Simulated scan of single mutants.
Amino acid sequence: MTALPSPPDLTQPERRTPSRWRVLSWQILGLALILGVWWLVTDLLKLYPPYVFPSPRAVWTEIAYGLWGTGPQDGKLLAAIGGSLRRVLTGYLIAVLLGGLAGLLMGAWLPLRATLGAYLTGLQSIPSIAFVPFAILFFGLNERAVLFVVILEGFIPVALAVSGALLNVPPALRVAGRTLGASGPGLMLRVLLPAALPNVLTGLRTAWSFAWRALVGGELLIAGAKSLGELLEVGRNTANVALVLATILIIGVIGGLFDALLRRAEGRVRRDYGLEVQT
């Protein structure tokens, strides 16, 4: 008689995810490795001239001048960060409001989902920089053109995320809500939308990354505005590669910090919903 396979040992501990401190130590080690290779290529081996590929010290000097130093870019980086954040936060909030409303309507009404949803899916595949010429011709070379691109790039993922999240709510919750007397807008706002919240937050994080990239692309074309995009253009026009790299690093740090905040909020909600286990 063939012996039955032994059941899994449920007493063994589950595989635990790495702690935050361990992940942070890996990230610091990776950053140190990148800086070490950068320093080796530029300062020690001198494989490229400084005006082509500057050293980490030269890039840090531009950052220090732009934030608190006394140099040709004194204070300009700080002002550029403030201007860009004001634009992107304004456009992002408008995109979340409009996209959330459109997503609710698409989730509740099939004809709108079949038409507008399909169009938005197609528009999402178009790079944000492709909308900049239209925005400039329609609004002029001003901040409204940049805000239009930011709002559009944030609106699409929010609308699609809200609509998709509502459709993915388990049917049992819909039945339970109707059994308890919820219907129409009450069912949508009190049952379906709370159940879809984790997936909606994922869409909000995606919308932030789209809006942030669209902002920088649009700001490259606004002359005289205090923005990170203008600093990139100044660095290009003056052949200041150190300023270009410093601005790119600042853009990456700001975008990463906001993404980390949204990711943290998303993780908190997912743990509250029992979708993730806190270790």
Rank of each mutant, 00 (worst) to 15 (best):
L35M: 09
R86V: 08
N237W: 01
A260E: 02
E276S: 10
A172H: 08
I156V: 15
L245H: 04
M1C: 05
E153S: 15
D74C: 00
A135K: 00
P111S: 05
L112R: 02
R263D: 11
G75K: 09
V200H: 05
A58E: 14
A102I: 11
P7L: 12
L187D: 06
Y119M: 14
Y51W: 14
A118H: 07
A260L: 15
L89C: 10
V132I: 15
A64W: 13
R271S: 13
V96T: 11
L89I: 14
D43K: 05
G83H: 07
T2Q: 09
L231E: 05
L187T: 09
R178A: 08
L189E: 03
A207V: 11
T279Q: 11
Q27M: 13
N142T: 09
A211C: 09
D259P: 01
N237F: 06
I28S: 06
R86Y: 09
Q73T: 12
T115V: 13
L147N: 08
L249I: 14
V169I: 09
L98M: 13
R213M: 12
L40H: 02
T247Q: 05
L78R: 12
P49D: 12
Q124C: 01
P5K: 06
K76T: 14
I126S: 05
P18M: 11
G267V: 01
